[in-house]
């Protein structure tokens, strides 16, 4: 900024207040940079960096496509987001699905629909038995509430296919 101390307007006065214009110019420059940071934060927020948006929503499948998980990568502590898991298997039977890893350390499951045929804890996570429909599809609608802070790695495990790995981050 070449107008720093060149312009007579910007010289420090002594009366009636003692001024330090060099410092005041720094303050004004900080205000301007701060404004750019605020705009950047707004844009990132709109893009979904702080949950719910393009940067955050994920739709992943296992290699053979039998498991599909739609989830949010970024969460905020205390707020809820949904996670949908779709599983395909043999029609009119039960499929075993495991939510493994750190998911239950960082999140609490507020709702789980439809109710699984059977449920059991399994290490850090839980194991669910879902009833498939006439086409062999079973969908699970979960509402997750972020209770922890930081990064949590988890896996959705369906026996017979590779694990679907998830990484989720909870902002304070």
């Amino acid at each position: 900024m070449n107008d720093d101390v060149e312009h007579p307007d910007l010289h420090s006065r002594k009366f009636p207040v003692r001024e330090d214009m060099a410092y005041q110019l720094k303050v004004w420059r900080f205000e301007r940079c701060g404004w750019y940071m605020l705009v950047l934060l707004v844009v990132l927020g709109l893009a979904g960096l702080f949950s719910r948006g393009l940067l955050s929503t994920r739709d992943v499948r296992s290699e053979d496509g039998r498991v599909r998980v739609q989830y949010e990568m970024f969460h905020r502590n205390g707020s809820t987001n949904s996670m949908n898991i779709s599983v395909s298997g043999v029609p009119e039977s039960t499929v075993e699905l495991e939510l493994a890893g750190e998911i239950l350390e960082g999140f609490s499951i507020e709702t789980l629909q439809p109710e699984p045929a059977r449920a059991r804890s399994s290490g850090q996570g839980i194991r669910l038995w879902l009833q498939t429909d006439t086409q062999g599809q079973a969908d699970l609608f979960i509402t997750l509430r972020g209770d922890g802070l930081g990064l949590f790695h988890s896996r959705i495990v369906l026996p017979g296919t590779n694990d679907v790995r998830l990484a989720q981050f909870i902002f304070p």
């Binding site: 006065r13 207040v17 001024e19 303050v27």
Partner: peptide, 13 residues
């Protein structure tokens, strides 16, 4: 004090 509160600035002289 200057950092937290700031300082007055003359705008009309």
């Amino acid at each position: 004090s200057r950092l937290i509160d700031g300082e007055p600035t003359i705008i009309v002289e």
